[in-house]
């Protein structure tokens, strides 16, 4: 019986990986064809192979390919971070924003726009703002020693997020309403419209660096989801591991938020789909969440840029899709805080 079930599970993992991989490639290719300028599959393949020149090749290689790659990166990273945070906080209703990374990044970016800094500096400030907010939360939680660490972290995250939100609002009031305010609003709703290949170069390695400890420690992160006390009794240094996971997931989130702005809901909703597919084991949950998240954001971004003549902000679409899904989960849900 046992040998049988183990074999079945291993056999199921390969087709799943193959299916997800094939699906992503197919969707990415389809996304290259979609848009106001018509591109045929043959032209797209030619452009990718370097055989095609001319306008179609320019559209595919310079406009659509960076954007498709950015959607895959941002979606995958947000979903991976969401899966990590949910496992860490032992709560399936947690999103990567829970410790204030998005609010902090938002404040950083808005400050950058307010100061009329160049794009790269705005992205840098968003990244630092996200890391700074979470670092502040972690410091406060560490100072409040004799209490439930998870609860302190989450509550401090809410407080720091609200503070950053207030500062962002103040900057919006002070910003130039014709020039800066639209940029701020657009950034806070998330968009890949302005992302270039050059923008992605610094973000990609940071995301990978953040993913390394998450993948390497996947078994222990599982154990951590039993709660601190049990994890420690099972031999895991829970406090240290939690800090490491928070740092890694925050790095991943902050780097893509600085690229794409605040894109909500992906990190909250996608890990649920992944959990329905492969169960809660973090070793499989992490890569499957990343793959589904990448595909999901690719679809949403392709919709955002092609469904209407004016581009729809990403955050609006992900919320419109994510909110009903989330309500469904709440209605079905059987778990809150343990």
């Amino acid at each position: 019986m046992v040998e049988g079930t183990r074999a079945v599970r291993r056999d199921a993992t390969l087709p799943l990986a193959a299916g997800l991989g094939f699906g992503l490639v197919a969707m990415a290719f389809a996304a290259l064809l979609i848009g106001p300028y018509p591109v045929s599959p043959a032209q797209a393949i030619g452009a990718l192979a370097g055989a095609e020149t001319g306008q179609a090749a320019t559209v595919v290689l310079s406009i659509r390919l960076p954007r498709v790659a950015a959607a895959l990166l941002v979606g995958g990273a947000l979903a991976a971070a969401g899966a990590s945070y949910q496992t860490l906080f032992r709560n399936p209703l947690v999103s990567p924003d829970i410790l204030g990374v998005s609010a902090g990044a938002g404040l950083g970016a808005v400050l950058g726009i307010f100061l009329s800094l160049p794009v790269a500096a705005i992205q840098g400030m968003a990244f630092l703002g996200g890391l700074g907010a979470v670092a502040l939360v972690a410091l406060v939680a560490a100072a409040v020693r004799n209490a439930d660490q998870t609860l302190v972290l989450v509550l401090t995250g809410v407080v720091v997020g609200a503070l950053a939100g207030a500062a962002t609002s103040l900057l919006k009031v002070l910003a130039d309403p014709y020039d800066q305010l639209p940029a701020i609003t657009f950034w806070l709703l998330g968009s890949l419209a302005a992302v270039t290949a050059e923008d992605m170069l610094p973000a990609l390695p940071v995301v990978l660096v953040g993913l390394v400890p998450l993948v390497a420690l996947r078994w222990r992160i599982n154990v951590l989801s039993l709660g601190d006390e049990e994890a420690r009794a099972l031999g895991v240094e829970a406090g240290r591991l939690r800090l490491l996971v928070i740092a890694a997931a925050t790095l991943v989130t902050a780097s893509v938020v600085s690229l794409a702005g605040v894109v909500g809901w992906v990190g909250l909703v996608i890990p649920h789909l992944a959990r329905m597919l492969v169960g809660p084991g973090f070793g499989l949950l992490l890569p499957v969440s990343a793959a589904i998240g990448a595909g999901y954001l690719l679809v949403v971004d392709t919709l955002a840029r092609s469904a209407t003549s004016t581009e729809i902000p990403l955050g609006v679409l992900t919320a419109v899709i994510g909110a009903p899904f989330f309500i469904g989960l709440l209605a079905r849900g059987r778990r809150g805080w343990t």
Binding site: N91, P92, S225, E230, L234, R335
Partner: peptide, 12 residues
């Protein structure tokens, strides 16, 4: 350590 039985947050 065998703690008192509890409900885990995820369906392991």
């Amino acid at each position: 350590y065998v703690p008192q039985a509890h409900a885990p947050p995820f369906p392991y």
